[in-house]
Structure formats: structure tokens, C-alpha cells
Design a binder for these strands. Structure first.
Length: 335
DNA sequence: CGTGTTTGACCGGCGC
DNA sequence: GCGCCGGTCAAACACG
């Protein structure tokens, strides 16, 4: 095992920073693939903003970087669909003790599960409103139901409950959960988010925040919560894919570049794409495929300072690569 | 005034 | 059927 690691130029340990702050346990790299939720989970660590180490761009690219520069949601989710046909779930071990579903670091997965998995047939959005939003874009919600404007019979209670009877559920957007070592709850990713809700998380002192991309017609949402088991870990779950350029990127490459170097800033997809050549991805992806790591029990880490899933209009080539990578991961959990 | 946050209420799915 | 809970809404509020 350890020998393996030593021989492996891409030993996990190499992903750790010298001071290694925050690395709680073998980092996790998990895929939570489910027909209904399409939730995938990644782990990476983000340096605290004040951590000098963070100022040094990591030689390794984050998974987010990978996502941004070479893979888009569609591709990724497609890859998941293709490679993770089963709904197996890699049991996380980051949370020592494998806590129960709702209170562990795996909550995103669990949460995701609640949204659909339990009912295989509900491989669809549980919110018709959501669907409406996606379909109609911006004006949607109100206009669509407009319970208040059109019929206020019993709108008192059904302010939004007066929605059309038939809720044609639609498949949930692919979701990707990231575990991030950070002191910042809401990690910057280059996009603008509007917080639309916050809920207390059961069995956790930390609330969960709900954000929506402020860009019109963009239905991407994300949830941010802090692991109660390891408060230093922020769990960010993205859902959907942006259909627009990253605002940060639009501001110029300089800004984007700065963003990348910023410990607390998750650079824009495009920015990363231009900053990190794709070939940097190959070694990382390849190493990820290294079977010798199988004994790591599906653990793997992306050492980075950036994150945030993003699509870049598509890039088929990487699809294959990612696909391979995913396959290897899947294979590992099959036996 | 535009934009974003806070927060209580509501809705719908799910388990019992 | 009921209660729990995750997710969302939207009014009120804060801020630049």
C-alpha cells in the first residue's frame, strides 16, 4: 500500500500541502450516481483565505478546474450515466464512523437521495415550479402560476399552491457535490449567486443556504452547508448548468487570472480554461486511473484552490478521458 | 433605486 | 392520514 504510494508519482500525499491543514482523512472522491438525482460528489480542499500556502497556485489542478476546462455538466453527467449505470453509492469514509445518512458529510448525497432516489420512478424534479422556471426561463414562476393575479380565491394559503394540477416532473439536473476545506461558507466561483433560502439542517448546528444563479434564464442552483462533523468542510452542491459566460470571465482575463490565484476565489470556467492548458489535465486524470490506488478505497483528492463546476460548451475529447476515469472508479467499487 | 439577504410560511414528497 | 423535512417563495429589510 504505502509502497504503492511511494512508487506512485501521483501519490495522494503529493496532493497534500506541506502544512496540510485541513486534510482530515484520506480525501474523498466520490460519485453519487443515481438515476434520479444524478448527484456526483467530489472532494477537494480549499485553503483558508489567510493561509499563505493558498497563495501559491497548486501545481495540481482542481477537479473543478478539470470540469471547467475540459468537461461540462452534460459531459460529466453523461459520463456518469454511462459509467455508473448502477445506483451504487460509494460509501464515504471521510466521516469517521459513517454516520447516518442525514448528519454526515455525505449529506448532500443523502439529501439528493431524498429528492428522488427513494422513488426510482421519480427520476424527475420534485418541483414543478422549478421545471417551469427552467422552461420559461425568467418570468416563469409568477406568470406561470400566477395564482394571485388570476385567481385569488383561496390564494391566502396557496400563494404558490395554486399551481397547475399536473406537475409534469422533469428530470433533475445533474448535481455535483464538493467538499471543500474552507473557512468561507459561500465560496466564490466566479458566478453571481442570489441567496433564496436558508434552512436549518437536521442534526447539524449549521444551516444550509440555497443559492440561485442571478443570471437570467440560468437555472443553476447550489446549496451550501457546512459539515457539522468537520466544520472546516464546506459542502457545496451544484445543480444544473450555466447557460452563459462566467461574469468573472467577462470582466477580463486579468481578473479571471487573479481569481484563480486567489485562495478564496473559484475561477471561472473559461478563465481556467485559458489559464490551465488542457494537457495539464491528462496527467492528473491518468493518475486518477491508476489502479494501484484501488486500495485507497475510492479515495482520491484534488488538491486545488478552485472549484465550481462549470460547463464550457462542450469538449468531446475529454469526455472520453473522463469517461475512462469514471469507469476506473466505478470498477473499483464494483468488486 | 437596484440588488442581494433574511426569514417565516408554504408546498410536496416520503415514511410511519 | 399525519407529521417530518427538504426545498422554495416572497415580503421585508439592508446596503451601496
Amino acid at each position: 500500500m504505502s509502497d504503492d504510494k511511494n512508487n506512485d508519482p501521483f501519490n495522494y500525499n503529493h496532493f497534500y500541502t506541506p502544512d496540510n491543514i485541513g486534510v482530515v482523512s484520506p480525501p474523498e472522491f466520490r460519485f453519487f450516481d443515481d438515476d434520479s438525482t444524478n448527484l456526483s460528489m467530489f472532494t477537494h480542499h480549499q485553503q483558508a483565505p489567510h493561509n499563505p500556502q493558498a497563495l501559491n497556485p497548486s501545481p495540481f489542478m482542481s477537479f473543478t478546474g478539470c470540469l471547467r476546462s475540459s468537461v461540462d455538466y452534460n459531459t460529466l453527467s453523461r459520463a456518469f450515466d454511462l459509467s455508473c449505470s448502477s445506483s451504487e453509492v460509494i460509501t464515504p469514509n471521510l466521516d469517521e464512523g459513517g454516520s447516518s445518512k442525514k448528519c454526515s458529510i455525505t449529506e448532500p448525497a443523502a439529501t439528493a437521495s431524498e429528492n428522488g432516489p427513494l422513488s426510482p420512478n421519480s427520476s424527475v424534479s420534485s418541483s414543478s415550479k422549478e421545471a417551469a422556471v427552467e422552461e420559461d426561463g425568467d418570468n416563469s414562476k409568477k406568470d406561470e402560476d400566477d395564482p394571485k393575479t388570476t385567481c385569488n380565491d383561496d390564494d391566502d394559503k396557496s400563494k404558490k399552491g395554486n399551481k397547475p394540477k399536473k406537475k409534469e416532473k422533469r428530470p433533475r439536473e445533474p448535481r455535483f457535490a464538493f467538499l471543500t476545506k474552507s473557512e468561507i461558507d459561500h465560496l466564490e466561483d466566479g458566478y453571481r449567486w442570489r441567496k433564496y433560502g436558508q434552512k436549518a439542517v437536521k442534526n447539524s448546528p449549521y444551516p444550509r443556504s440555497y443559492y440561485r444563479c442571478t443570471t437570467q434564464k440560468c437555472t443553476v442552483k447550489k446549496r451550501v452547508e457546512r459539515s457539522f462533523q468537520d466544520p472546516s468542510i464546506v459542502i457545496t452542491t451544484y445543480e444544473g448548468q450555466h447557460n452563459h459566460e462566467c461574469p468573472a470571465n467577462l470582466r477580463g482575463n486579468a481578473a479571471a487570472a487573479a481569481a484563480i490565484l486567489s485562495p478564496s476565489f473559484f475561477a471561472s470556467p473559461s478563465a481556467i480554461g485559458t489559464t490551465f492548458p488542457h494537457n495539464l489535465l491528462l496527467p492528473q486524470f491518468l493518475q486518477m486511473r491508476n489502479p494501484s490506488r484501488a486500495n485507497s478505497s475510492n479515495s482520491m483528492m484534488f488538491y486545488p484552490q478552485t472549484l465550481a463546476p462549470q460547463q464550457q460548451q462542450f469538449q468531446p475529447p475529454d469526455h472520453g478521458l473522463l469517461h475512462d476515469m469514471l469507469n476506473s472508479v466505478v470498477q473499483k467499487k464494483e468488486p
